[in-house]
Amino acid sequence: MDLAELSERLVPFCREHLGDPAATVSNVETMPGHAGFSFGFTATANGESRSYVLRVPPPNVRRVGTADVIRQARVVHALRDTDVPVVDVIWSGEDERWFDSPYFIVNKLEGDVLRSDWGWDMPAEEMRPVAFQAMRALASLHLLDWREYVPDDGPPLELEPDVTRWDRFYERSGDMDLVALAPDVREKLLERLPEEPRIGIFHGDFQWSNVFYSFDGTLQAVIDWELWGVGATLNDLGWVITFADAEAWKHGLRHALPSPDDLIAEYVDTYGSDPGDIAWYRALAAYKFGIISGFNLYLHRSGKRPDESWEDTALSVPFLMRRALEVLDGG
């Protein structure tokens, strides 16, 4: 729906849920990063104005997986009294009379994600404590007993399918030369599957654009829980470290994040014990993103999903694959 229609729908919703028949809605806007399915707005009711963010699934898709917004709201709500900072879920529901779909609404935060001009321009001495907050939040998430917080969301995902499920995307790379090392990485990952991975709640896309800070550098919330699940928690650590590892990228990194070793040390210190074979999960993350980049390059070049940025990102695919082999070998 367009913003004018959404504005009209939000007025009766807010009047009912805020208990003010004269409530008004303003500043309705499309929020970044969600392909038009996350909207900000301000509601004024009972003499007070507050800003919110509405999340709805994409139209005309099955409401499962990343399109299951109620599932996202459920985990965020479950984490509200833990050491994992999350937004407050103000309303959620499956009553489609409001927006023609399930929905959830959270309070709108003031600040920005770390992967932004605000964050990336931060000097190293300021960046260090800011980034460490994210690592502590991640370890705190992984320490939670999933059976207590999300008991209906098991059983845990297995590791071998998390390697082999990328085969079909590898075969559709936009440039097979870029993924030439992928079969070697795949083989080594399967040879070295962790035997007893630590199981818990994982975020699924824990990276620097999904940690939201106030402008004084305080972590306010881990956001965007579309890919959360129950399984090997170190998937999250491997993923975020890959995006902090200059050796995994052709052009290095433009930000002043702490080194992978320092970030890992902060995570382990909060976790309180040896979390397992971190190198394996770092290699898996590099392997995944390398294949994802090659596949998105194919979608771009074929005209199915044009996005020129993948031409540049895909240049790092050989570096990602080489880095995966290096960390598996102890580099």
Results as ranks from 00 to 15, higher is better:
Asn27Glu: 11
Glu226Met: 11
Glu158Pro: 13
His255Ala: 14
Glu110Asn: 15
Asp307Cys: 15
Tyr170Trp: 09
Trp118Thr: 06
Trp239Met: 07
Pro123Cys: 03
Gly111Met: 04
Ala286Tyr: 05
Leu320His: 01
Ala285Gly: 11
Pro85Ile: 00
Arg50Thr: 08
Arg128Met: 04
Glu196Cys: 05
Gly331His: 09
Ser26Gly: 07
Asp112Trp: 02
Glu160Trp: 09
Asp262Arg: 08
Arg97Pro: 01
Gly272Gln: 05
Ser26Lys: 13
Pro12Ile: 05
Pro59Arg: 11
Ala232Phe: 07
Thr30Phe: 03
Leu138Thr: 00
His34Tyr: 13
Arg282Met: 10
Thr242Pro: 00
Met135Trp: 05
Pro85Val: 00
Gly19Ile: 15
Ala232Arg: 01
Asp83Arg: 09
Met31Cys: 15
Asp261Ala: 15
Leu6Gln: 08
Asn296Ser: 14
Phe132Cys: 01
Thr42Asn: 05
Ser273Val: 09
Val28Met: 08
Tyr52Cys: 03
Phe243Asn: 03
Leu284Ser: 07
Ala139Thr: 00
Asn296Gly: 04
Leu189Arg: 09
Pro260Gln: 05
His142Phe: 09
Gly36Cys: 10
Asp236Gln: 05
Trp225Ser: 00
Tyr103Val: 07
Met1Leu: 13
Glu247Gln: 11
Val25Asp: 04
Leu144Tyr: 12
Gly252Gln: 08
Phe169Gln: 10
Gly200His: 07
Arg15Cys: 10
Pro129Leu: 08
Gly276Arg: 02
Pro58Asp: 14
Lys108Ile: 02
Phe169Met: 14
Arg192Tyr: 14
Leu143Trp: 04
Ala283Lys: 03
Leu284Cys: 06
Phe215Thr: 15
Glu110Trp: 04
Pro32Ser: 11
Tyr52Arg: 02
Val150Ile: 12
Leu3Glu: 13
Trp208Leu: 06
Val76Asn: 00
Gln72Leu: 08
Gly36Thr: 15
Arg62Val: 13
Gly276Phe: 06
Ala23Phe: 02
Leu3Cys: 05
Ala180Gln: 10
Thr24Tyr: 07
Phe206Trp: 14
Arg74Tyr: 06
Thr30His: 10
Lys288Ala: 01
Ser259Tyr: 07
